[in-house]
Design a protein around this nucleic acid. Structure first.
Lengths: 245, 245
DNA sequence: ATACTGTATTGATCTATATCAGACATTTGT
DNA sequence: ACAAATGTCTGATATAGATCAATACAGTAT
């Protein structure tokens, strides 16, 4: 039985959204916020496993994740090789890749039932011309994505499997903690396959490395549940012995 | 004897720049172009080997490459591992990484004597509010960088050494050709070390793979001079046997 | 409870690429 | 013109992680 999402559009308000300190409204005055409410047209549900957009889709809007968890990926033109390019959580903006050619160049897939705010890009541009704070914030969001991708490139270009996985865990926990969740416990939303694709290693290596961290008492892991026992040890793996040089 | 760049600022004009179809002025009306001239404050020379900016530098301006060739890189915090994140040629904009935290997060190093147009970011934002075409173009430039980095992530995450090098050559020749240079001949500006860092492989593997392509009659290579003999063969390596699936 | 399906773990083996090392080529400085 | 420094090429060997394969586990349906 395949679930399909209800096309269920309802009014939203940034001004009293619990994510306003993480999402698009950052730094806007109450007045500006009121105007922002008007550009966020609708809230759209996306069920687990569904695609919010796919490579080749026409680009019209950015999306702010209100609830849920997404992965973005691109697929090789020839064979179907998938490369996961990122995992996105609440308050994050997805779809920036679509601006340059008015076409999406990646896939965004919900890893749990989700809700996104639809931000028509025309409206964002219009309002950005009016509000310097929003303009600045949009530029920062795009720049942040560029910097994030630089870090992924660094990870894939220079790091060993253990370093990659340590970096991945630290990043995930940090972002999760910023959203008010536990600093030490998480339930992963993505499969070992997804993690491996993101980190440029196989799912077997992901599994083995998790087990190794577990044997060393750094983490506790049971399937998708992860608890960090020694965060310093993870940081040490990620940033090895700087004291020795 | 270490050469240092002359601080030599001279007036420039986008409106009669030979790069106006590649660079910031794309899509601007003659009127808008006139205004753009006023935000491009100065032209700044950067000698081969010099840094235009470094990780940690304060961010004030974007830079448009007028002449010359750059690499951008980031270095691991602990040891000095360098990861080359891109190679930039004339007409391209660098410094976008600095917007998010008003600090540059990468290094931009000239690989040959260069000249950049300094674009104070405050002015760009001011003018973007006035000219929708410039605003749209800035958004596209940032989005294009996000898409480019996605492709690098794909390359590093899923491709073999031969595929990476084929992709690298095709991309470099294509961009060079767009600037009016030969479709089949190039003199590389970067070392084997730089190429290897960019592609996540060692310089030895770069060298060996070049030699292999040469033995197979796909390219001719003598140190930094490269001629492509069979472009289709390179495309085939980059996009292997789609006909077989 | 039992079978079924997708996901995760663990082990044995293989391989692409790293590492180490030496020869050669090119550029730079004197 | 020569020496030194830097960059490139090629060979021999080592290794991190891939691949292949079998088992175990969790969630859902029968």
């Amino acid at each position: 039985m395949s679930k399909t999402s209800l096309i269920q559009d309802y009014k939203t308000a940034c001004s009293n959204c619990h994510l306003r300190e993480l999402c698009l409204p950052v730094g806007l005055s109450p007045d500006d916020l009121q105007k922002l409410n008007n550009i966020v047209k609708t809230r759209q549900p996306v069920l687990k496993g569904e695609k919010l957009f796919t490579e080749g889709d026409e680009f019209n809007s950015l999306f702010a994740i209100h609830t849920g968890f997404f992965k973005t990926s691109i697929t090789a033109t020839d064979d179907g090789r998938e490369q996961v390019t990122g995992f996105q959580m609440t308050g994050e903006i997805i779809g920036l890749d679509g601006i340059v050619n008015d076409l999406h160049t990646c896939n965004a897939i919900a890893l749990e039932d989700a809700d996104v705010c639809v931000l028509p890009f025309e409206n964002i541009e219009l309002l950005s011309r009016e509000f310097p704070a929003l303009q600045r914030h949009m530029h920062k969001i795009m720049s942040r994505e560029i910097v994030r991708e630089n870090e992924v490139i660094m990870l894939l270009g220079t790091m060993q499997a253990e370093e990659r996985l340590a970096a991945f865990l630290l990043n995930l926990f940090q972002r999760s903690h910023m959203r008010g969740f536990s600093k030490s416990e998480i339930v992963l939303r993505m499969s070992r396959q997804d993690i491996g694709s993101y980190l440029g290693i196989t799912l077997e290596t992901v599994s083995r490395t998790f087990s190794k961290f577990c044997d060393e008492g750094i983490i506790e892991i049971k399937q998708r549940y992860v608890r960090i026992i020694k965060p310093e040890a993870l940081k040490e793996i990620f940033n090895p012995n700087k004291s020795c040089q």
